[in-house]
Every structure is written in structure tokens, then in C-alpha cells.
């Protein structure tokens, strides 16, 4: 009975995190983006500086009609948002926020592989949406999504593999247990490659060609309305949380901090994740969208060689210190 309660409690906590953190990131994005552009952002909803704007948005989305285009592949069209969203919920289960068994949803032996595998499944949702919408713009968006995924998953995997090599384990808490502060400069190239490739996989600006609104309307999500559209948006923000959390755990030492690591480790994790989320927003505001061919070139000619070099470096240092 106690075990069941424990599992239920963990699932509940992860679910609550899954529902609230993306909203917090979304609200932060509204505000930070506005101030970076000399604006104020939402000010009305909820009274104090528009804190309830995203809740109001959610209510609006829920009220809207759920339209399925006439020529669409009905079932796949309706299934796609769930396929896009659920993997991120699963990934959150595996991310440890503090030391010990109590601070992670589920300890997995091959955590790195689990996380990357499940994140790659999420992109299937966009592909299904792009194909099933019976819309040329959606199809183009789906194509771009697929091309982008193929190009950027490789550097992401290689960068993660570098950390796994350094730690000698593929379990996420195991990597954190092995972490030392000098891993930071040692793995910095891998960290940057991982973060950038992750941004591309989430289709965040400046890598948002699959949804480029000035070219193909909204890519694979063009035909979506109401709650299903909101689910896609939620998936994007949940993806930001997952990416930032993963980068924190893999490269920035998770719960390790200069001081107060005992008992307050989860604060460090959350702080690092929040800073990274801010960086995601910051990059979005600052840089214009890359062109599709620039995107492919960037990955194959820069990120992949960089990540391979990082693996070589990791291997050399690993052998030397043994």
C-alpha cells in the first residue's frame, strides 16, 4: 500500500510540474520578450502585471471550436497533439532534481537513452499533424520538421554520449554523482552543441523554420484550432523545460553548487534550469530565423564536427586521468 501511495505521489508531483512549469516559462517569455523590445507585455489578466494571461489564454482555447478539415485524415489529425505532448511528460519522470531516490520520478538504468529516445518520439506528432492536415503548408512544415530532426538529433546524441563517456554511466543520477566542477570547462563545447541542437529539435527560434509564420503560416499546426492547438503550444513549452533540465543535469552539474549542496540541491537544479530557460527566450528575441539551407549546413558542417571533437577530447582526457 505504501509503495502504491509513493508511486501515485511521484506521478502526481511530476504531473503538476508538467502542467505548471510550462505556463511559468510561457508567462516569463511574454514578459521578458516584451521588455527586451521596450514593451510591457500582458498587464490586465489577473490584475497584477497580467500574471494570469496564460490561464485566460487556456480558457479561450478551450472555448474555441475544434475544427477538423474536410479532407484531413481524421483520426491521425486528432491523435497528433497527444503524440507530441505525452513524450515530454514521460521525460520529466526521469529527470532528477536533487540527490537521492526521493528527488526523481523514476530511476532508470539507461536514463540518457530513455530521455533522448522519448524526445525523438515527440517529433512524430508534428509529422503526423503535417501529413494529416491535407494542407500544403502543413506538409511543408512536416517535411522541414523531419529534415531538421534528422540533422540535429545526431549532434545531440553525440554530445550526450560525451558526457556519458566522462561519467562512465548512462544513468542520469549516476552522471550527477560522478560530476566534478572541472567538467564544466571540459564539456563546454558539448554543452553548447547539445543546447543548440535541442533548440533546433524543439523548433524554437532561431531554428523555427518548420513553423516559419512568414513563409508557411504555421507549418504543421496551420489547421489546428482550440484545445488541440493549445496542446501543441504546451508541448513546445514543456519541451523547453525538458531541454533546460537535461542540459542542467548533463552538463551543468544539476544539484551541485558552490555551497549549500546538502538539502538544497533541488534549488540549484531549478535555478540553473530557470537561467537556461531565460537564455532560450533571450535567443528567441535576439536572432532572426535561419534559412532552411543554412540550418542544414549549420548542423552538418559545424555541430557534428564539434561534437565529434568533443568526444575525442573526452576520450583523451579520460584515458590520461586514469
Amino acid at each position: 500500500m505504501n509503495g502504491v501511495l509513493d508511486v501515485a505521489l511521484r506521478l502526481l508531483v511530476v504531473f503538476v510540474v508538467f502542467l505548471t512549469f510550462p505556463l511559468i516559462v510561457g508567462q516569463t517569455e511574454h514578459k521578458v520578450m516584451a521588455h527586451m523590445q521596450g514593451r510591457l507585455g500582458p498587464m490586465y489578466a489577473g490584475g497584477f502585471h497580467g500574471w494570469a494571461q496564460l490561464i485566460a489564454d487556456g480558457v479561450k482555447f478551450a472555448q474555441k471550436e475544434d475544427v477538423v478539415p474536410n479532407g484531413a485524415d481524421r483520426r491521425i489529425f486528432q491523435l497528433a497533439p497527444a503524440v507530441a505532448l505525452l513524450p515530454y511528460l514521460l521525460v520529466l519522470l526521469a529527470i532528477p532534481i536533487g540527490p537521492g531516490e526521493g528527488a526523481v520520478g523514476q530511476v532508470l538504468d539507461a536514463g540518457v537513452f530513455f530521455v533522448l529516445a522519448v524526445m525523438a518520439v515527440g517529433v512524430l506528432g508534428s509529422l503526423m499533424a503535417g501529413w494529416a492536415s491535407a494542407n500544403k503548408f502543413s506538409l511543408l512544415g512536416g517535411l522541414r520538421t523531419a529534415a531538421q530532426l534528422l540533422a540535429y538529433e545526431l549532434p545531440m546524441l553525440l554530445a550526450a554520449a560525451s558526457v556519458a563517456m566522462a561519467a562512465g554511466t548512462v544513468s542520469l543520477p549516476g552522471i550527477l554523482d560522478a560530476f566534478e566542477w572541472w567538467w564544466l570547462p571540459w564539456q563546454i563545447v558539448g554543452a553548447i552543441v547539445f543546447f543548440v541542437a535541442g533548440l533546433a529539435e524543439l523548433q524554437r527560434p532561431p531554428f523555427d523554420m518548420p513553423v516559419a509564420d512568414s513563409e508557411i503560416i504555421f507549418g504543421a499546426y496551420t489547421e489546428y484550432t482550440g484545445l488541440r492547438f493549445a496542446l501543441f503550444l504546451l508541448a513546445e513549452y514543456a519541451g523547453i523545460i525538458v531541454l533546460c533540465g537535461l542540459t542542467t543535469v548533463l552538463f551543468l552539474g544539476g544539484w551541485h553548487g558552490p555551497w549549500g549542496a546538502d538539502g538544497l540541491g533541488w534549488v540549484w537544479t531549478l535555478l540553473k534550469t530557470a537561467i537556461l530557460a531565460f537564455v532560450v527566450i533571450w535567443l528567441r528575441v535576439t536572432y532572426p530565423r535561419l534559412r532552411e539551407d543554412q540550418l542544414q549546413k549549420f548542423s552538418w558542417t559545424l555541430l557534428v564536427p564539434l561534437s565529434l571533437a568533443q568526444i575525442a577530447l573526452t576520450g583523451i582526457v579520460k584515458v590520461v586521468i586514469q
Partner: peptide, 26 residues
């Protein structure tokens, strides 16, 4: 066989099927 399971998802579902769908969309 946890490792094999996740690699199966990563390679086949995450990459091969995506490549397949990419081809089908073309």
C-alpha cells in the same frame, strides 16, 4: 533489457520511421 529497449525506440521509432515518413511525404 532496458538498454536495448531504449535504443530500439531511439533508432527505429525516432530515426528510421522519421526518415520513412520524410520519404513518404516527398
Amino acid at each position: 533489457a532496458e538498454f536495448i529497449a531504449w535504443v530500439q525506440v531511439l533508432i527505429y521509432v525516432g530515426s528510421v520511421v522519421v526518415l520513412l515518413l520524410f520519404g513518404l511525404m516527398l
